[in-house]
Design a protein around this nucleic acid. Sequence first.
DNA 1: CGTTCTTGGGTTAACGTTTACTCATAAGCC
DNA 2: GGCTTATGAGTAAACGTTAACCCAAGAACG
Lengths: 336, 336
Amino acid sequence: MSATMMDIARDLKVSVVTVSKVLRNQGRISEATRKRVLRRAKQLNYQTNWVARSLVTQRTYTIGLLLPAMTHPFFAEIARAVAQTVRPHGYHVIISCFEEDPELEASEAESLLSRRVDGLIIASSQLPCRLDLFKQVRERSVPYVLIDRQVAGLRASFVGVDNHAIGRLATEHLIARGCCRIGHLRGPEVRIAAERLEGYRQALAKRGLPARSCYVVPSGYRDEGGYAGMRQLLGLRPIPDGVFCYNDLVAIGAMKAILEAGLRLPHDIAVVGAGNVHFSDMLAVPLTTVDQGTREMGLRAAELLIERIASKRSMRPTRILIPPKLVERESTRRQP
Amino acid sequence: MSATMMDIARDLKVSVVTVSKVLRNQGRISEATRKRVLRRAKQLNYQTNWVARSLVTQRTYTIGLLLPAMTHPFFAEIARAVAQTVRPHGYHVIISCFEEDPELEASEAESLLSRRVDGLIIASSQLPCRLDLFKQVRERSVPYVLIDRQVAGLRASFVGVDNHAIGRLATEHLIARGCCRIGHLRGPEVRIAAERLEGYRQALAKRGLPARSCYVVPSGYRDEGGYAGMRQLLGLRPIPDGVFCYNDLVAIGAMKAILEAGLRLPHDIAVVGAGNVHFSDMLAVPLTTVDQGTREMGLRAAELLIERIASKRSMRPTRILIPPKLVERESTRRQP
DNA sequence: CGTTCTTGGGTTAACGTTTACTCATAAGCC
DNA sequence: GGCTTATGAGTAAACGTTAACCCAAGAACG
């Protein structure tokens, strides 16, 4: 199989500890033996056995990333940012997707702990908020950071975007573009969606526009839901002249419904999404969206986690809110 | 910290081995002690320490997935399929993205081996085909399966799609829809692209259509490249009336260029993509594409790998080619 | 020259499991 | 009742490292 330190030690007639010290650049070792060990290691193609090292150091240099989905561009982007951020620190990432299934989320979290990950980044399915899960995690004193989705009733470090601001920015933008009957495809029943909805309401109120409850339609978090939701909005009279969508995927579904109905985009209805996923500006009608700093979210969460792992003693929970930015494209570019 | 078998053993005044046997359901244990151990384990909230177990069993129940990118929907889908397939077998997946950087690919592979993954699934950056990397892998006799991208000169198990067939299907479909000046955005300089190009040529030849080399334009593998490539095609006279694009992302870029030029889709130019990524049918003009069975690719690769891991002795390399399927949508729906 | 450092290494014991044996005791059998 | 055979456990060693000490020999010093 693969060579061990013992092999090197035996060949060179030194102790394993000497080899270990050389390979870790630690302790006093004469230049001569250092060279010999290094040379033999290279010859044997030695590679650290991380399993053995982890057992004694109690550090696996692995973090777990618990995501609802990874085919969703938003989470894929997060995963990428996290992986890139922790790599320079020597960490690897085990990604576990629970496909929005809380049962699976719990069992995967357990499983990751069992593998002794050094820390966890979690975008929890917050549906039945599984505080017991987090009690478990805390009990084992494994540092963790929540990302994107907060969990009610849990004091924990969190990195996310300011969802109120997203709702406000998007809605204010629609108003500025002359829309006065603004609908909202409000996504699934999660806190994030509620916050964006709240931002939407605030913006309407601030401009003195009416908030008609039938203009707010649930839409899930994918395009299919956006398509269905938009068709529902199109059934109303008068139809909205602007729609703020929970996210870009929902917006894509919505735009499709709009175009299918023979309406002009953005002339008849303007659309704003949220998330600024990569292909949003490559659509037939490039999508105006609110960038939620996905990359930065992943990056900050990873940095925060690494910091927690490094400093033994538990620190106070930190909250980081990324300020969103409006990105204007064709889907709202019209005369007020 | 977390409870160990020793804790349980001490409490119950039995040996660790007894505990171990109970927890693994192995060896003869009386029902009475079995119950006692299980109860205490639950009380202490015991969880297998996989690091320790891995050290002695030489199995980590972790596989490495080496991908060029994970924000690309195609690879995200593969990652998902792989993870879902191996989970029931108790495996976790460490995903490592090398962002199309061969250096990073090599170092990540090494790093995964160092962590003693039980197997590897690799979509190699085949650019400078790093046979040395694979020699390494083989030397450690870690089973691996190549996915999507073959590596020239390497006899290894491979799961991919029949790329000639993709080129043929797409091109024949365009011909059947009445196109006679068929362009091709041929993607990056990789074997897959060459195979699709070959399929494209075969189809043209079979129908006696001319293969004009200026109609074949490189395009990278993302939408930006497709956009640029299509603009180049639009500069030709006569312009093509049909385009087969390396993949869906490229096709999206191409469609954008077409619409921007004021041409009608599919009336003036029909477009076929490849990959059938999730949002292809949610575009303004839903994209006709060739489904490459992405999910099945991931699934088959994972199954193959698990099989290899299970059967100690090395088996002969297997090649699995998934047959592609044409999915017709609006982007080619026109009268012949 | 005796004492104290420094240098370069070695010893021993973990880390938390599993594996391969061994060994009492009780049961079964003629 | 003496023999074999199940049964239910235990012992010792191993997996490949690292951590905490220890120690001999030479150097430095007064």
